[in-house]
Design a protein around this nucleic acid. Sequence first.
RNA 1: GCUCCUGUGGUGUAGACCGGUUAAGCAUACUGCCCUCUCAAGGCAGUGAUCCCGGGUUCAAAUCCCGGCGGGAGCACCA
Length: 506
Amino acid sequence: MEQQRKTIESEFPGLLAEKPKKEEREGLPPLEGAQHGSVVTRFPPEPNGYPHIGHAKAAIIDEEYARMYDGKLVLRFDDTNPEAERLEYYAAIKVGLDWLGIKFDRVKNTSDDIELLYKKSVELLGGNFAYVCTCKQETISANRREMRPCKCSLGQVEQNMERWEKMFSKYKQGDAIVRFRGDIKSENTVMRDPVMLRIIETKHPLLADKYRVWPSYDFAVAVEDSIDGVTHAFRTKEYELRNELYYAILDALKMRKPRVLEFSRLGFEGMPVSKRVLRPLIEEGKVSGYDDPRLPTLEALKRRGIRPEAIRKFVMSLGFTKADTMAPFETLESFNRKIVDSESIRLNMIKNPANIKVVGLPQTITVPNHPTKEMGSRTIQLDEGVYLEQEDLQNIKVGDKIRLMGLGNVSITGLGPQATARYAGDEMTSDIPKIHWVVQKTAQKIKILVPSQLFFGEQFNESSLEELNVFSEPYYSELKDGVEIQFVRFGYCRKDSLLQAIYTHR
RNA sequence: GCUCCUGUGGUGUAGACCGGUUAAGCAUACUGCCCUCUCAAGGCAGUGAUCCCGGGUUCAAAUCCCGGCGGGAGCACCA
């Protein structure tokens, strides 16, 4: 064996050389054609709703790549449909992205560039790459379906130019559109002379009625990505068929072409993201609003106690793939738990109280707020009346010893509706049951909202939000709203208000 | 229906472009042990995938080719 090895080494040097080992890749896969320092990515949300986990995935990928290549990230509000955009959404999206910790090198709106888009439109028309179509909508769609060119496509450049002018004066909404000359017989339906600009008379949230001719998504993204210097444009999979159009438009315009790549949409089982299903839920009062803890909106996730860093780790763990999958919410929870664990004050809380009277208790005790981290301590005023969890008393007999966590040992002297016990010192023994407790006199009644899956298939889950009426230590009221706490032996919760907490995860 | 995309343990992925030395790495979930005044976090170990199926190419295929099947998406004057 050794002999052979030597022979091979001398006869065929290099044959036994270590193969370039495939080392474990960290993070996103490398980008083709990416030059360090000159990569530009972009996140182009439409301001037509509240940001959700899907936006987070896209924005995080965009930012991670920009960061990876020491490049730039552009936030561009894709606001080319005045019927859908609303001012509050521009702000909501920005707030959500800030919360996620995403930093942009530039923020702009597609609507800033309307004039430029008009120029490009004229260029298209002038080069006969597009025409103005005045057919009825139904006719157009029927023709597209049947691969039939409509008569407007036969018009000369002059006619199109005339009609183009009329789009700004005579024509009304629905009367005329600019269509790209694609290929009406293409297998790819997107290429069958798609809409580039159309008339919309609704007021735009930023520009009011300054314009009435608006570019379509396909026209706007291609041109905008190109002029924004985007080198790599990412979008979700459902846009895949539009790549051909994207490149065709830029070819016709002789503009620089970014590379377009797509990734799978992110969704959670039973947690709808689409406005189509969310809106009725809110209108019918089935959920309280866009920050209802059952929803995958960023507001809701935040309110529920999910940290932005957890979302980022989660998104990165999903990778950059086109495989469609329902992401496991529990993975997000796991990342979150690790972050939140070291920052959460531990408090006692009783769900199903059992009364017990303990005699011989000290006046007060001081307990640490966290088992290992230095998070201060709190002093608890003791009293004979104590609440224990009913469940914990289940298998207890008279004479048994139990340990009230942080307080000391207690031996049971009587059971029943009013159990009794006697304080039995503070000596630690290992095999004693350790249970949590709350002083009755000072117990604070609070409500804990426990969110769970909103839908099972198409079916709305009527019990998706459980309300628990519980007794917490009074220290709860001294905590600031928004802090994450761990109710011992129960789970993590985020303080939503003085009287309400929201269950984060176990 | 047509077109495109996709298919690795329960789940999400790495590996696939450049086929062999890992019959498959990581995370999550689960189980057990350790630690612990929590059923959390942490540490350790373990269960679990013949890489959708069937052919083919090859000395050799999760990796290349062909054909099925399953899943998703698009077929808007929405993005």
